[in-house]
Design a protein around this nucleic acid. Structure first.
Lengths: 127, 127
DNA sequence: CAGGATCCATTTTGATACTG
DNA sequence: CAGTATCAAAATGGATCCTG
């Protein structure tokens, strides 16, 4: 049961491709949106503020390919398609939620830092 | 001590900008590289496989702006610049490491899923 | 050595229109 | 409704040259 001795820090490690996909804001938000349960395409779109239909369908497709979400299309008119986290996808939720929580919990500190940095930058340019 | 009632799922929430930065493979790897202790620019570059000088300097600059890393430049020739995680940055390490660990731990499952998906795709195109 | 500047190729994202 | 196709715009990434 040996794992390869390399890791994501190695450019050619296969897991780098997986990290590249999950270390992405859209992926993070879609996984969080689907955590409570299966949703229709349009419902995900409402849940993830600001995402375009194109980006959503493309990202969902990649996540389906990676086995993170499953897709169920009902043969109806108009169409009805539902997405759900797979067991693999559910195992991803906790890390993703932790990342989002960090962003929310530290946004004030980050903003203060940005303001200070930009001020230093300004007076450096002015001299 | 009330937090705003919105969150990263809301497009206009400030924390969205923070999530966008940390939900990024380069950020993840740089934070992990710096976890053991301060490193010089070139050392980070070696630690993070495949990163270019341009991307590294740009990303470090953003992370410095956000207060995640601190930068120390020694007035020498040739230059010597060291980077270190701030306390804020150290608080980010755990979530980042969890994400990287997920990528590594599940890469085989992901790859199997990708292969199966691509095969289904192929036979769908062939018919 | 640590970067900034520049030029380009690639990728990502977004609007819009269209269809089963 | 859930996409796909298309075009344009913007962001990202890489390679190279240059400097203190």
């Amino acid at each position: 049961m040996e794992r390869p001795e390399w890791n994501v820090m190695v450019a050619t490690c296969p897991s780098r491709t997986s990290l590249a996909r999950i270390a992405n804001k859209w992926t993070a938000m879609i996984v969080m949106a689907l955590d409570p349960g299966r949703l229709r395409f349009g419902e995900i779109r409402e849940a993830v503020g600001g995402i375009s239909g194109k980006v959503l369908s493309e990202t969902l497709r990649q996540l389906e390919r990676d086995g993170v979400v499953s897709r169920t299309a009902y043969d109806q008119m108009p169409p009805r398609v539902e997405y759900e986290l797979t067991p693999l996808g559910r195992s991803l939720h906790q890390p993703m939620a932790a990342l989002a929580a960090w962003a929310q919990d530290h946004i004030e500190e980050v903003q203060l830092s940005r303001n200070a940095f930009d001020e230093r930058e300004d007076e450096r340019l002015v001299g």
